[in-house]
């Protein structure tokens, strides 16, 4: 202890140069560069080069000219669109019902925790829960039960391992994610505004139309965009429910990596990966623009 140069250290806070602070950023920077930058570089570099390491657009023209890569993209976009729309509508409705109860109430705690579990952890566990419930008749408990009362889901074309089934599974985590994202905005909706509006003679409908909806719109659209990106990037649930055969972009990447039958398959996976990153980036850009507007009311 005594051998430590205590005096300069003590004055350190006031004196240390900014250079010293930058040194403190080294661990984080190095870590991110290695464990995110390196794999990301592999993907981007692999996508724009050929096997002989020359710059090429060949990989992209392959994925854009072949219907076997167009269809998964289309499916992914459609699936993301309707699951995020359903999630946003029901999530907002649920969040509004929950926010109406006082902060710290049991209802709010339970919904917040359950939302966290399903939105962030869901994945495989959710998939198995749904297989147990909606799997084909002798197995799926609810499917069997519905069959007994005369509704044969699988005869109507439903299957938990179809695109529709996977979409239904996605809704199970899209709704809670919406609840998490929209709750702060709903909390920011001041009761005083309604009070003021009604004082000025506004009906409940007027208040909704001229105050609540315009104030909520940016937050709602922002959250909707996050939900879209979330569904678009998600794969865990689909992987556990179906595997590589589901015609979605992540499964196409999975198939391209692990099915090393054809040459250049890795590069196809990388090109699809870059395509995914670009689409999510566009979504996140719009999110960022909307978010700037939404923040105005959330202070």
């Amino acid at each position: 202890m005594t051998s430590e140069p205590a005096a300069p250290r003590r004055r350190g806070l006031a004196r240390t140069s900014v250079g010293g602070a930058w040194v403190g950023m080294v661990p984080f920077t190095v870590y991110v560069l290695i464990f995110m930058g390196l794999p990301l570089y592999e993907v981007v570099h692999g996508a724009v080069t050929s096997d002989t390491n020359q710059l090429t657009w060949q990989n992209f023209s392959t994925i854009f000219s072949s219907s076997s890569y167009w269809i998964p993209l289309e499916n992914s976009l459609i699936l993301s669109a309707w699951t995020s729309a359903l999630g946003a509508i029901f999530g907002t409705w649920l969040a509004a019902a929950v926010v109406a109860s006082p902060a710290g109430s049991l209802l709010r705690r339970v919904v917040a925790s359950a939302s966290g579990v399903l939105a962030y952890f869901g994945g495989v566990a959710l998939a198995f829960m749904l297989i147990a419930a909606y799997g084909r008749a002798p197995g799926g408990v609810l499917t069997t039960w519905l069959k007994h009362i005369g509704i044969d889901l699988y005869n109507q074309g439903f299957s938990i391992s179809s695109l529709l089934g996977v979409g239904v599974a996605y809704v199970f985590f899209q709704v809670p994610l919406m609840v998490i994202l929209i709750t702060p905005a709903l909390e920011g909706l001041r009761p005083q505004w309604q009070e003021a509006a009604e004082n000025l003679g506004a009906s409940k409908l007027d208040y909704m139309r001229h105050v609540a909806v315009p104030v909520m719109a940016p937050a709602f659209i922002g959250a909707l965009l996050v939900l879209f990106g979330n569904a678009f990037a998600a794969y865990a649930t689909a992987l556990a429910l179906v595997g590589v055969t589901i015609p979605l972009i992540p499964a196409a990447i999975n198939a391209a990596i692990n099915g090393n039958v054809l040459v250049n398959q890795d590069r196809i996976a990388f090109a699809l990966g870059v395509e995914m990153i670009l689409i999510v980036s566009i979504v996140m850009f719009f999110y960022w623009m909307v978010q700037r507007r939404a923040r105005r009311w959330l202070q």
Binding site: M36, L38, P39, L40, Y41, E42, V43, G46, G229, F232, A233, A234, Y235, A236, P250, I253, N254, A256, I257, D266, A269, F270, G273, V274, M276, I277, V280, S281, M284
Partner: peptide
């Protein structure tokens, strides 16, 4: 969040 896990995975697998 912008780079989907499957894309990061493909880079790492390579």
């Amino acid at each position: 969040l912008v780079v989907p896990p499957i894309v990061l995975a493909s880079g790492l697998a390579h």
